[in-house]
Design a binder for these strands. Sequence first.
DNA 1: TCTGGGGTCCTAGGACCC
DNA 2: TCTGGGGTCCTAGGACCC
Length: 425
Amino acid sequence: MYALADCNNFFVSCERVFRPDLWNKPVVVLSGNDGCVVSRSNEVKALGIKMGVPLYQIRKEVELYGITCFSSNFSLYGDMSSRVMSILRKHTTRFEQYSIDESFINVDHIPADEQKHYCEQIVREIYQGTGIPVSMGIAPSKTLAKVASKYAKKYKGYHGVCIIDSDTKRRKALETFEIGDIWGIGGKAKAKLQGAGVLTALQFADRNKEFAHNLLHKTGLMTWRELNGEDCIDIKDFSQKLSITHSRTFATAITELPVLEQQISDFCEACARQLRMQESVCQRLTVYVSTSRFRTDIEQHRIDVETALPIPTANTAELLQYALSTLRKNFRPNTPYKKAGIILTHIFPQNSTLPYLFDERNREKDSRLQATLDMMHDKFGKRTIVFGTQTTPISADSQNQEVYKMENRSPLYTTDISQLLHIRV
DNA sequence: TCTGGGGTCCTAGGACCC
DNA sequence: TCTGGGGTCCTAGGACCC
């Protein structure tokens, strides 16, 4: 049996931990540049405000209902997440963190008739330990556990935990569950299924295997089997990333190459650091830069170039050389670039790669320099020393205020020691 | 005017091999 | 005029997730 633990309105809940005055009040958390709604309190959901809508489209409601808007504060959410996850981890031997606010845990070590009660205790422990409300769904497959968690979230009577442990319960749960809300069924699959007369999850589960396979292929068949109680999706380890991305949309479009170089350099360093932290190297680097896809008054332009590196590396200086030369080669003057990013792929463990006979770099020296930079980063702060093409430590604050709009970010309550002074306990 | 960021997995088709 | 059969590997793009 799997138990899925899903934090309720996660980003909003994180903000509320430090702003108890906002309990039972309408609250949203916004994406970068305060662009879109990415987390909503129940009060906001009740107003019919949809996930992902741009802020400018709901200005009226924000004003009218006094909705509190937060800019996103990922240092806070990441830190709160690891607190929640560390509690969950204690309660199982098989643990998979699926996203920042969701984890699957295996509960087969608990007798069947005690699993619900056991998870209710976990929910209480997490709330008492972190202030974050969590819902749990227990079922024989992950897809059914997701279904159960939705019921746990929806109905107060479940006390935060819903279990599907019999065929009767399974059929009852799926009967009123809209097919498009099933994990793994997105817009395209939903349309196909509806076209075939399938509106609920039970209708899908009750069709035969060939129907699922023919219409939706391998992934659809897997969902079908999972809905019928078969466990097809094993616990995975997401800790070693297969790709690492850093990207941003700019508040004001960038037209100057040197400014873009600074942004690309910062993304590159952020990706490379993450790569080194998981003790991996990468063999591909993608640079992408584009104009705003929403603008119809300008000619669209995008750079999207992947480079294969001669030797896998995690060295910032080396990655920077490839990234910047790609950017300089493809940059088009007088173009209002609105978004840019770096993607690292073809990632392998650090010690799994072969040396290269015609290598021109002194890798021994490179890695000593890199280790020194990382040490300084850890000891004195991340902007103590940077590459010449990056945003400079002195200008970064004021400069980034122009590049990124962020009007309502909460303090770094849990990760910045100086902010502790602001908290009234 | 203003529209996020970071991931995984699958598949079709091209390139290449004998 | 007639022009095989059977593979593998790679990649771009689609679909989906939170």
